[in-house]
Design a protein around this nucleic acid. Structure first.
Lengths: 419, 419
DNA sequence: AGCAGTTAGTTTGTACTTCGCACAAACTTA
DNA sequence: TAAGTTTGTGCGAAGTACAAACTAACTGCT
């Protein structure tokens, strides 16, 4: 399935931006901001403001951005004409008197974004509207140890089914994948539980099949973007997303942009060391955070302590059993959340982001788990005067956050929010 | 001592930039880039290119930045007229034929930068030229547990002595201080070994006395900026500075800018946990990195192993004794560098900066220590294909790096290198 | 010596963006 | 009905980067 035409409205510079990329490739380490880039940047920032704050009038946007109203008009008018944005009905303003404001927001019928969530053995694809709505979800399974061609066939079929529901060509496709991802080159490096994906240049493959911009990043970073877009991270300039489960991972939103690290390798927190010469980890080293805060540890401890059904223990069940009066569950929950807290403490000491959104198993423990973790972090961190550390769970279904985030990856990579 | 006039040439926007700050204060979380800001940004980036690459001709700068030659001319011409930059003699170009290029660089007689290094008990002040030269160094001592007024008097006297050597008003004063610093508000929060400094609003005090822009940041961040300016970090876009000694600290240069974290509290690596429920730390927690990689640990181990003069042991002496054939020194050096490596490993897993510059005690161990640390890091980090980790020591005297860095803080905060 | 070729830096005019001002539209309050 | 307030829109001004064409200065070849 190929889309012949790109959507009429370009969100920033879609094509590899001529000069800036050229400068980068020339080895130049400085890049001046060109006149035209400035326009694209400011357009992107206005859209970002809409994502962050929901429908807003031109005057509100001008106030938020601290610029002239006419500037906003100049920016949004072409977007309205291109049907990217729509003007809502005049809402009765809360201030007395004056012409009522016309709120602007994304056109639900604007081109959508393709999103793929790739976990060992399963593919989920969907369309995400700029308003955050999720449509045309399709799921498929693949053999994690099977044939590469077979996987590509399943992937193509799934994505085709989803994309064919779109009325117009999407802006692009975002892929969130488990494992170790090289987001610069668009390849999957390794996925522990799905060897078939090792070394797969998925971006190149999908770009060729669908003639659309394709972005890939690892799962925690998609969660981060999803949080930022329509979750607890909305509007925040600094926070981290932390994923716990069979493995541990994280991703950071720093000073208003997604942090990637070189080749997109930042945030592999699972293998930071919290216990020198501690227990052996899957990675071959000792004392990784993953050895004390992931599900395998929890299962082992549950078995050791004689809790019922230790093989299927989760944080959610632990909370439930603790609430029902199980002392063992209560104690294990405390130790588990304390171990999780250590990773967050190290993050806090390093980056001082002050805000953390939990995903995965501990998120299943809800507010109770989050509060326990927060208390442990408070105790373990070196306090600074006036510092407040916030730890929340993303209540929305995790798949949805990841899918929205995968879609958001396309935006954040093409919106030129950064210079 | 007061300077009546600001230097004629403004490096970027000196005064609290009208709109951008206003927008920030208004609570707006988006900031559009205005036309005039664009000029300041690009001016700053051209200067940055000069810092990074040394003297360069207009044509070279244009190539480095990927912009038109005329743009560079337009940017540098006013700077030459204001005597911030000077045109060097036409150097015989390496290419054959053509008009010889006139290299541009900072005028040694341009306004300088005031720099202060504040450690428990001692003050060092100096002037730093834009070319990196250090002049008019003055030193003084103060009572770490004495009277605040007395400290301020010493500080004022020292700084006055240095600044009076300047021929024109400096661009500003940068202060690098040990301890916990709130760089946003310009106050010293706590310095363990100098209680007199606790809570001191030093920026406000110095600004009032000298009528100059004043910036404060913590010691490791000054080392970082010093490295970046004329040290091993020169021209790099991503690296970390790591300080070891009585305490441990770090600072990060991320995507071409200094990372501060909220209220400048990022990089307090000493109290990240590498040994859950490990040895008791000064901070009251257990198993901090500082308990296994700082000098107190080294002294204790040296004593336990029966090394000579354990109370004055340093990495430098350890390397020397190991070279002279001491097995005990060799073994302790290996353990020490391994413990230091753990902190770097956690940094690498988190941020993936790939490049680390060592300062403080381990830097005294020179190449030998750096190479040992590098080997340990290589072994302890989860490898990614094609990833190279570089660990270097800053050979220049450490005080000089910190002083240059303190000066550089003024530039990086006023140069608008960032948007 | 003279000419072609090459590179550096400048002049001139153009395109793009934001800003301030003035003004019409639309609503509230007295 | 009139005054006051807020929203959104033309229009010209100011600032910036860019492209083309030009001069300046040097090398190499004939």
């Amino acid at each position: 399935m190929k889309f012949d035409s790109q959507p009429s409205y370009s969100l920033g510079q879609r094509t590899p931006a001529s000069r800036e990329v050229a400068a980068g490739e020339n080895g130049g380490n400085v890049t001046l901001v060109s006149q035209s880039a400035l326009g694209a940047i400011n357009r992107g920032r206005v859209l970002q403001a809409l994502y962050d704050n929901g429908p807003k009038s031109r005057a509100d946007l001008a106030r938020l951005a601290g610029v002239n109203r006419t500037t906003i008009t100049g920016i949004v008018q072409p977007m309205i004409e291109d049907q990217l944005l729509v003007e809502g009905d005049a809402s009765p303003s809360d201030v007395k008197g004056g012409k009522p404001a016309r709120p602007l927001y994304f056109n639900p019928d604007a081109p959508m974004l393709g999103a793929v969530l790739l976990l060992p053995g399963t593919i989920q694809a969907c369309l995400v509207a700029l308003t955050g709505e999720i449509k045309a979800v399709t799921k498929a399974e693949f053999d994690p140890v099977g044939d590469t061609e077979a996987f590509i066939a399943v992937m193509t079929k799934t994505l085709t089914a989803t994309l064919s529901e779109a009325h117009q060509a999407p802006f692009g496709i975002g892929v969130a994948s488990a494992g170790m991802i090289d987001s610069d080159n668009g390849t999957i490096l390794t996925v522990n539980l799905a060897p078939v994906l090792t070394g797969l240049p998925l971006v190149a493959i999908l770009q060729e099949r669908f003639s659309l911009p394709v972005v890939i990043d690892h799962h925690p970073r998609a969660l981060l973007v999803g949080d930022r877009w329509f979750g607890p991270g909305r509007g925040q300039q600094n926070f981290a997303a932390v994923y716990t489960g069979e493995v541990l991972g994280g991703a950071f939103f720093i000073d208003g942009k997604v942090y990637r690290g070189l080749a997109g390798s930042g945030g592999e927190l699972g293998h930071s060391v919290v216990q020198i010469d501690g227990a052996l980890c899957n990675c071959g080293k000792h004392g990784c955070w993953e050895t004390v805060a992931a599900l395998p540890w929890l299962r082992k401890e549950a078995a050791r302590m004689g809790l019922p059904h230790p093989k299927s223990i989760t944080c959610a069940r632990l909370v439930k059993e603790a609430d029902e009066g199980s002392n063992a569950a209560d104690e294990l929950l405390d130790r588990y959340t304390r171990n999780v807290a250590f990773g967050i403490v190290n993050l806090q000491q390093t980056l001082s982001l002050n805000s953390y959104v939990l995903h995965g198993d501990v998120a299943g423990g809800g507010m109770r788990a989050a509060e326990l973790i927060r208390q442990h972090v408070e105790q373990l961190v070196v306090k600074r005067p006036g510092q407040e550390i916030s730890i929340t769970v993303n209540g929305i279904g995790e798949g949805h956050t990841a899918l929205r985030g995968a879609a958001g990856l396309v935006l954040s990579s093409h919106l030129k929010l950064v210079i």
